[in-house]
């Protein structure tokens, strides 16, 4: 019981500190903006560790963070192989293929207004469906290995990316199009110099959403069939063995991979769309 009391004390202390920082004079600085959420996260981990150890929570329900870290350190080779299989082979390849296909399709569709008017609603519709359900079908077509996972990722990222790109290409104002008209610009010139740059913020929105979808797609697709390697495989196998520390280890890897992937795209976005109000911090 003392551990519960202690945890509560720690939580309240950390929260009070955060309140002080958030409402203090330095609250606008970058340092404080990083400290507060970090403190929150660390406190969460600390309380988790204390409560699990203090209350002797069985491992099969919730392992303490320290055990998860240990498991990760002991199994680096396996974690790496799983990462390569799921992320590099499955998610990344599917992401590149799916996004490129979507962008090219959007360019084609853009030339024919009739097509874009028909495709946008249908694309929006399909993007809202549980595409993950196509995983068993794709495993049947492409086999157990990374190809079917990449295929699932392609299907998952295609429609959000298509919808965002088409929307971005339509984003120009009448005035900007009129200006091009007064220059007697050819459609290709108007496309390259106006519509494509103007579409970039939307396209990057789609690219960012797709990073998350890609990783989810690759992992969950492995629940439907996989060779004995891969993050999804390891998670479902470890769950079966009640080796929850390994499950959490894979989740940490997945979380790191997911945020790093998203972050990388966000950095590129900042470079390409430096001019957009959302990037200028206005």
């Amino acid at each position: 019981m003392s551990i519960v009391f202690f945890s509560i004390v720690v939580w309240i202390a950390a929260w009070t500190l955060n309140v002080k920082l958030a409402n203090g004079t330095a609250s606008g600085t970058r340092l404080v903006k990083v400290i507060v959420p970090t403190l929150f996260g660390l406190t969460l981990l600390l309380v988790w560790e204390m409560l699990v150890r203090g209350l002797n929570v069985p491992l099969v329900i919730l392992p303490p963070p320290s055990l998860v870290v240990d498991t990760m350190a002991d199994n680096l080779a396996i974690l790496w192989k799983d990462f390569v299989q799921t992320f590099l082979k499955g998610a990344l390849r599917g992401y590149l293929i799916g996004c490129s296909a979507a962008i090219l399709t959007a360019f084609l569709v853009d030339r024919f207004d009739f097509l874009s008017r028909g495709l946008l609603p249908v694309g929006n519709f399909i993007a809202a469906l549980p595409i993950i359900g196509t995983a068993p079908i794709l495993v049947m077509w492409f086999g157990f290995d990374w190809q079917s996972k990449a295929a699932v990722v392609v299907v998952m990222v295609f429609f959000p990316m298509l919808v965002n790109t088409v929307a971005g290409l339509r984003e120009t104002t009448a005035m900007q199009r009129d200006l091009m008209h007064t220059y007697a610009a050819r459609p290709a010139q108007s496309f390259l110099k106006l519509r494509l740059p103007a579409a970039m913020p939307f396209m990057f929105n789609g690219l960012k959403i797709s990073t998350t979808l890609a990783l989810i797609g690759a992992i969950v697709a492995e629940f439907f069939g996989s060779p004995v390697v891969g993050m999804g495989f390891r998670i479902s196998a470890s769950v079966g063995q009640l080796a929850l520390d390994m499950v959490w280890a894979e989740i940490v890897v997945a979380a790191l991979a997911g945020s790093a992937f998203y972050g990388a795209v966000a950095i590129i976005e900042k470079g390409v769309t430096f001019w957009h109000p959302s990037q200028r911090g206005s």
């Binding site: 404080v32 507060v36 989810i216 499950v247 989740i251």
Partner: peptide, 26 residues
Amino acid sequence: SRAMDMSVMPWAIASQTIPILAIAPM
């Protein structure tokens, strides 16, 4: 609450980049 805003929002936004669905079996 500013404290809640600064503590939780970064995690809420970051969590959207994490494949949460992978936890489902567990």
